[in-house]
Design a protein around this nucleic acid. Sequence first.
DNA 1: ATTTAAAATATGTTAAAACAATTATCGTTT
DNA 2: AAACGATAATTGTTTTAACATATTTTAAAT
Lengths: 149, 149
Amino acid sequence: MKIEDAIQQTKFKSEYHKMVINILYTSKWIEEQNAVVLKPFGISNQQFNILRILRGQHPKCASMTTLQERMLDKMSNASRLVEKLRVKGYVLRTIDEKNRRQVKVNITDKGLEILQKIDVIMANKEKEFEKFSVDEAFVLNDLLDKLRN
Amino acid sequence: MKIEDAIQQTKFKSEYHKMVINILYTSKWIEEQNAVVLKPFGISNQQFNILRILRGQHPKCASMTTLQERMLDKMSNASRLVEKLRVKGYVLRTIDEKNRRQVKVNITDKGLEILQKIDVIMANKEKEFEKFSVDEAFVLNDLLDKLRN
DNA sequence: ATTTAAAATATGTTAAAACAATTATCGTTT
DNA sequence: AAACGATAATTGTTTTAACATATTTTAAAT
């Protein structure tokens, strides 16, 4: 569906402007789809985001600052999100003895397990994207990267 | 900057998966930039969204349902957002006497004025996007549209 | 004409995000 | 070493979003 139809707006200031709106809209569209998958697991999009970053680091840890930077969120939110994940047993939070200001966050086995389960479902959903060619996906990635400079 | 560097993740499951992450990340990046512009005006992204929709309709009105449908965030509460804008004097809300269930929302002159001011700044920011060719923007729009089916 | 169902919006409540201020630790300067 | 500023994270508060429920009005059915 074209963005014009999705938000029922026929004219845009420019193709650039339309592009910005389109990215925002598509992102929300994806997040909503993800939320549906995540809901039964009792995990929010942002929590999921953190878990994935941590898995990318596994078995190494990540500091709060690292998490905050990669998820483009406020530090205070990252802190509380991690705490919620800790209570659920998905992450481990320990003080870094090398620098006691810092905190080391690791994903637990339980965290990896739930990610695994979610992945199966998400991968299935992402199969729909195979209407795209890999080349097209590549182009899109390239354009987005360029957009952010 | 490539998404790999932005979130410091070297490998992705697939180019498709990377694309999804990239859209989410870029969207947050844009929203953050917009928020910086809007903040001095005391207006949130969502409120800004509503004002622009109303300007698109001007001098006609829009119903709550119309706003809800056209907003980028379909889940948001248009009713309360409009109320906030009304208190600030940017919109007018009147009951539709033809159908008293409905409400007619109009943008005020004050609303148009503030949009004008914001536009100048935003337009300046969006100039950066001219590193894109119109063709590229067109391709990106096309791909995003295709992604959502 | 009354009842029922649907439509449009508003409100109440809980969870999350944004904002501001605070605490704890470290590195540096004097 | 004491004082200072910078860094990393947390905590308190306010605002906004998400979700469910309620209210008001209209349209349809009996």
